[in-house]
Amino acid sequence: MPPVVAILHQPPGGIDHGGLRRSLQARLDRTAYRHVSRLLVASADLADTLRAGGLPGDLMRVVPPGRDPASSAVIDPGDLRAGRRAAVLSVGNWVARKGLLDLLEALASLPADAATLHLLGDDAVEPAYASRVRERMAAPDLAGRVVAHGVKTPGEVVGFYRAADVFALASLREPYGTVYGEAMTEGLPVVGWDAGNLPHLARNGVEGLAVPPGDVPALAEALRSLTLDEPVRRRMAAAAKLRASEFPTWDDTARMVFDELRDVVKEAQ
């Protein structure tokens, strides 16, 4: 029987399904993993989670995704500040774990001239949650301060990274957080919860700000410091770009995957 390699970007059962499906899928996933020769996982944080769940650490190799999202032409979205002091960008589908409502609450507590928030992502994945997001966006304290752009091509997304000043994602569970790495590559300081893989990508106070999960006032203060203090923002932006230069590109990731596959084949001979 030829060797089997599994590529994991989420823990067994996934993180976006309901309890029953997640439980059943986790059992199936764990059963399948008993027959693999190698587990290629997306991040150090995910590897820690898998080990804590009883999966064999000696079979794991961390192979992160690439930091370069597009080879297509980059499209400039124009001025994103819209007359305010900074443009904040968030990239992610409108699902509860991405924390859009927390991000909106944090923005609402900032001075009205502090920032314009731009949201990129699919708003049709969780319709009930998306309805709550739209309702919050339409409230008087956020009127005109948030722009939803929907789904964009990779080239368009890169254009938004380059035109923004700060990247923010209030997600509680990001097994890797590809968008953090992409944003840092384009020189954006990142803001989010001190959870998931973000602490492995950006050091708090150096390349970005990571605050206690669920602490919306702390999230607001992080946004305040980066939108209103341009020297701090520029310092963290430069540090983020330098740090991201150490992250793999998609070509690097492909080489790592094929190197692991070749090693598995050799070991099986």
Rank of each mutant, 00 (worst) to 15 (best):
R22K: 10
P111V: 00
A73P: 00
P65Y: 05
P140E: 03
A112I: 07
V74H: 09
M137L: 15
S37N: 12
V95E: 02
R134C: 01
S43C: 10
I15G: 10
R136T: 14
A130V: 02
L110V: 02
D58Q: 09
A115N: 03
D122I: 03
R34N: 09
L120I: 08
L40G: 02
D58N: 08
L40Y: 10
S37T: 15
L104M: 08
E105F: 00
A52K: 07
G121W: 00
R132N: 04
V88P: 02
P140T: 01
R85H: 13
L55T: 10
E105L: 08
A44M: 13
N93Y: 01
P65I: 00
A138T: 06
V63M: 10
E135L: 14
Y129E: 01
A138K: 06
A26L: 05
E135D: 14
V74S: 10
H17I: 10
R132M: 07
H17E: 14
V36R: 00
A73I: 00
A86C: 07
R34M: 08
P111D: 06
A86N: 05
A106G: 03
A47S: 10
L142F: 01
H35A: 09
L28C: 12
G92N: 01
G19L: 12
L40N: 06
K98A: 04
D16P: 13
A108H: 02
L39E: 02
R84Q: 05
G66N: 07
S90E: 03
D122E: 08
V133K: 00
R85Q: 14
P56L: 11
A73C: 06
L59K: 11
A32P: 09
R30N: 03
V125D: 06
A86Q: 04
G19V: 12
P77F: 03
G66H: 06
E126T: 09
L40I: 02
R84F: 06
A52L: 07
S23C: 12
P77G: 09
S37D: 14
V63K: 09
R38C: 08
T116H: 15
G53D: 13
R136E: 09
V62E: 13
S37P: 00
S43L: 12
V88A: 02
G83I: 14
G57V: 07
H35I: 10
G57S: 11
L55H: 03
R81W: 05
R27E: 15
D122G: 08
D16S: 14
S90C: 13
T116G: 07
V91L: 09
A96E: 14
L142E: 01
G19F: 14
M60N: 04
D123P: 15
L28H: 13
A128C: 03
D68S: 05
G83F: 11
R84N: 06
G19D: 15
G19E: 15
H17D: 13
V91E: 05
G18E: 11
S131C: 13
R51T: 14
D122A: 03
V133A: 00
R51A: 13
P69Y: 01
L119P: 01
R22Y: 10
L117R: 03
A112S: 15
W94Y: 10
R21H: 15
T49I: 11
G53H: 07
M137V: 15
A82S: 13
A124E: 12
E135M: 11
Q25V: 15
D29Q: 02
P77K: 10
